[in-house]
Design a protein around this nucleic acid. Structure first.
Lengths: 238, 238
DNA sequence: GGGAGTTCTCAGGAAACTCCCAGCTTCAGT
DNA sequence: ACTGAAGCTGGGAGTTTCCTGAGAACTCCC
């Protein structure tokens, strides 16, 4: 079954991605499908309203800047229809718009562009969990003596609290999502860094170094280098 | 086997190989046909798009450098058609980190030239497994007390973890794919080493030696020499 | 607009890996 | 048993990959 739409699967959660930038829409769609969401796209406000009606998404990812109606207008009309679909807004970083501020009051949320894929996924999980649709029980990851809590953003190793910066946290979280698996450099950069990151891929090594320093003061090495390939989270010994 | 089309067999998975270098396309085609894929070739972007339409491949191997459209353009147009065919990109080693970024999000992947045939086959298996088309039961090989896991890249012998370098791993993996079969030196070199390897064929002996040293510290000899021919993976008679 | 905290760049050096070499051992056939 | 061919393995050169410290650039907050 190579072509056409994937089969409608009622067990999947539906996400409507609304962005007029086709690249961003595609990146999000691919990542979400990979996470087993059903995804549809809309490129402007009118399509978004129609898509919300037809596709009945559980959540909408909505760019604030759209060619016709802006994101807030779309949200407003949906609210008038009593659609009650949670929305994750995408905004430009410098849009210090006060409008954005009030979003989290209504249970909606926003992410600034450029974002990393893992950041979007984390917000979506948070929102879905809040409205009771989370399919995974997972605001909490653990591996060996490592614990990571998404709600409090706390990381502990054998009970000891470890302070991590944002990037360190995202990196560790991504590794803990795939324990023992070897993750390639490309995979890690794609998921943990912002989608338009164009810099030196060696940042990754720097952050691995930071993480190791913090983690290894409380126990043996857990982030292992697989030379020529990437990194893997493992406990030492057979 | 350039002449005549193989008979259409609906049970086979279809691969479209897109490369303007006829040698590379042929090497890949032969290896894939041997693995029981149905294969067609395209030498440029336009042919690739046409081939995708007519042949309806389950996966496309796509060189980034093509005489007309580049590989990314081909991928983009396929995406616009909602073709949703996974793609394995081939890129030059130094092109790696720019545009290739982002590919692993959608489940696509890339391999740098020059590659080894086994590397390509491994990536294809991974991709097909992810989209639910893998006919093989997976990521795990075992032979006697040897276990090899492709996800974690871990190799154990009777439970004991064995650390292998990349080349050692690829060599052992190839042997384990054909247990008890005598594999000729040429076969092994062709599959495990990069296709443009021009060096001394005696590297193979060196690596067999490395592998034996690591494996035999945990049990009896499993890699047996077949003098004048090659090597075979066997358990000693009991 | 200064300061603290964070992210990223860069470069030197360390470590790991691949491959080649050369001398030695093993084997097959006489 | 002898001999040439084939295979084995320790040593090491050359290369690639990775680690890490130092500092520049950026952001956020007061």
């Amino acid at each position: 079954m190579p072509a056409g739409q994937p089969p409608p699967d009622e067990s999947q959660l539906r996400v409507l991605v609304v962005d007029d930038d086709q690249n961003i829409a595609d990146v999000l769609s691919m990542a979400l499908r990979y996470e087993d969401f059903a995804v549809e796209q809309a490129a402007n406000g009118q399509q978004a309203l129609k898509g919300a009606e037809d596709f009945r998404p559980h959540i909408i990812i909505l760019d604030v800047m759209l060619p016709d109606l802006d994101g807030f207008e779309v949200a407003k009309r949906l609210a008038e229809r009593r659609a009650e679909i949670p929305i994750l807004f995408l905004t430009a970083r410098d849009t210090t718009d006060d409008k954005v501020r009030g979003l989290t009051l209504g249970g909606d949320d926003y992410v600034t562009k450029p974002f990393s894929v893992e950041e979007i996924l984390a917000r979506i999980r948070t929102i879905l969990r809040r409205v009771g649709l989370a399919q995974d029980n997972g605001n909490h990851l653990s591996f060996a003596d490592l614990e990571l809590d998404d709600d409090t953003r706390e990381v502990t190793r054998s009970g000891q609290l470890i302070e991590l910066t944002d990037t360190e946290y995202r990196l560790l979280r991504y590794l803990m999502l795939h324990p023992r698996h070897v993750l390639t450099r490309a995979q890690i950069l794609d998921h943990v860094w912002e989608y338009d990151f164009g810099g030196d891929a060696r940042v990754l090594e720097t952050y691995v170094s930071y993480l190791r320093k913090k983690l290894e003061s409380h126990g043996p090495r857990v982030i292992h280098t697989v030379r020529g390939v990437g990194y893997a989270l493992r406990m030492p010994r057979s």
